[in-house]
Structure formats: structure tokens, C-alpha cells
Simulated scan of single mutants.
Amino acid sequence: MQTLTKFKKTSPLLLDDERLALWDKIQTYSDNLVNTTFKEYLESTEEVAVRMEDTIPILHFYREAFDKILYELRNTKVKNGSASVWLLYNMGFVIKTPSGCFAIDLDHRLAEQLEPFLDFICITHNHQDHYNIKLLEAMVKNGKPVISNFYKDSGEYLSTKPASYKIKNFTIKTDMSDHLANPDMQDFVTLFRVECGDDSGNFSILHCGDSGFNPEQFKHVQGPVSMVVLRWGAPRESNIFGTGEGQVETNYAVLSHLIELRHKPFPHGQASITKTLEHLPNVKCKNTIMPFWGEKLTWSKGKMH
């Protein structure tokens, strides 16, 4: 897969002409996949899934991202004063520090295999593209926290109101938001702010999920933060940036939720790469990053690398 090989040589921190051209090819591969085929793939046996990955480019990228992250989690020793951040798929991130590892909104056909590496997992809301049920079951089976607003086996980590938790070196604060400003889905999304501790170089992350980006609903997670995970950079997403009540200050905004393959191509549900690139220049953040599945960012000395 020449496109993937070339893409791996680019950086999510540099959106140059080469990376833009490759993004365009990836969008084409995504558009060529019927969403029902992806759903069939998710339910397939491993043998059938591998055959599909060998013949359908976007599914090859999907599998390669998982294999890359699994390998790097096994083999990456995070240096003191830093943190590693991987985007797996959609809005699913894995964060590893010198003393622990957690994930937010992890959704992948093979996500269950990541359980041994995770200390806890956060889920923003009860939509299928934001969690993997087999992974949640494996976490609970092994006594690991699943923090959510809906999963019945979350136990003490189940909350439909703003909450705070302490797990190992990690401090987690949550708030509740409407889903995409939908009045019929009030308080449907949990916002997660995770402070990762001194050994991570004081890295912190705010994951907004599919929120409505209303500062009134961000008061429990407000303030300066190392990195903010947005959706696709739509204008309302910048409402949370600033120094006012319910706002956050950051030098790094990450765009996600790109080409989620269960959705039909844009404008019928999917957040397209093309439209996200149109949004990007207007995101009110010093550095707006657009990573792809499997890519890693490193926090060190107060900067993303």
C-alpha cells in the first residue's frame, strides 16, 4: 500500500502539500467503501476480515493502525517528564505515561487486545463508535475502572453528573454536555479532563466527545490544558476556547471523528477529511493538529512533538 507507506513518512504536525495529497487519496478510499460493508467486516471472522483488509485499502489502514499501536504499547518506554498519545480510530485515544496508561472512547474491532496495557478507560457516551463492548467486559473482568455515564458494570465509576476520580497518578474530572447541542439528548455526553501527573511533564488532556461545545457545560473541566480533543473543527467547537467561565486555554487542539466508517460519506453523516480541512484554519487555537489512525504524538518539555 504505497499511500500508507508514504503517509507514514509525513508528520501530523506538518500539513504540507504531500500530506494534503495523501489525505485526498485516503478520502477517496473511504468514500469507496459502502458503510454496510464496514459493518459486515466488524462482524466477520478473523479469516474473512483479513481477506477484506488485504483487498480494501481503507480497511488495510484500519488494521495497520491497530497493529502499530499494539506494537508500540508493548515496546515504548515513556521517558520521565513526557507522555505518548496515540489516535487509534475515530475519537479513540490511548495515553501512556511513565507510570500508567489509559484510553478514551476506544473503538476498534480488535480493541479487546489492548486491555492488558490499560489501567482504566473513559467513555464519553453510549454510541457504538465510541466504545467496544468486548474491551469494556475485559476491563471489568480484570477489575479495571470503566468510567462512563451509562455502562451498568462501571459500578462506582458510573455517573450522570460532574464527578472527580483519582486513579494511580491520574486525576480525572468530568462534566456533562448535550450531544451536539441536540435538545433531545441533554446531558448525554461526559466530558473528560485527565491530569496525568508530574512524571508525565504535567500533561493534561480534555476530551470533548460529541459534545455541544457550550461553555456553560464545561465549568467543571475548565482552565488551561495541554491538549484538547475536538471533533472536526466546526465553528461552534471554538466556543470553548478563551479565559472566561467554562472555557479552556491550550496550545494544541486535535481534530478527530474523521471518516468514521459506520456513517455514510459526507454529507450523509460522516465527517469528511475535505470538510475538516476547510474548518481547520478557523479553529481558534495556536496549533490545530489533524492526526490519522495509528499516529503518535509525544508531549515533552511543554510541547507536542
Rank of each mutant, 00 (worst) to 15 (best):
S159F: 01
V194R: 01
P281E: 13
R51D: 06
L230T: 12
E295Q: 15
D16F: 04
S82W: 04
N182K: 06
E40S: 15
I123S: 00
A181Q: 15
N75Q: 10
I104N: 05
V85N: 08
N169Q: 07
I123D: 01
G233I: 01
A138K: 13
L297Q: 08
P235E: 04
F61C: 11
A181H: 15
K152Q: 14
K134D: 13
S164H: 12
W293P: 03
F170I: 06
I121P: 13
K303G: 03
E47I: 07
C196G: 09
T124Q: 07
S30K: 01
E47W: 01
F117C: 06
G209I: 02
N75E: 10
H207D: 07
K275F: 11
Q247G: 09
E64R: 14
F102G: 02
Q270M: 09
F203G: 08
P12C: 12
N132M: 03
D184V: 04
E245D: 14
K96R: 14
M176I: 13
F266K: 02
F66N: 11
Y62F: 06
Y71F: 15
R231C: 10
R109P: 08
T171V: 07
P12Y: 14
Q27C: 08
T171K: 11
R63L: 15
M290T: 07
N169E: 15
K79Q: 11
V225Y: 02
L88H: 02
V254C: 03
P98M: 11
M304R: 04
S164Q: 13
K6C: 05
T288E: 05
R236A: 11
G81P: 10
E46L: 09
N239G: 12
E47P: 00
G233M: 01
S84N: 15
L297D: 08
W232M: 10
F266P: 02
V50M: 14
E115T: 10
F38V: 03
H305R: 11
P183S: 07
F93P: 04
L14M: 09
E47M: 03
K39V: 13
S300W: 13
I95C: 05
N132R: 07
T243R: 12
N214S: 12
N126T: 00
T288I: 13
K8F: 13
F7Y: 14
G233L: 00
N32V: 08
D184R: 09
H220Y: 12
K161P: 00
F192V: 06
P265T: 01
E64A: 15
K219Q: 12
C101F: 01
E295T: 05
K173A: 10
P235M: 03
T298P: 10
Y131H: 02
Q270I: 02
Q27V: 08
P215F: 15
I123N: 02
L14I: 15
H220V: 01
I58S: 05
G155A: 06
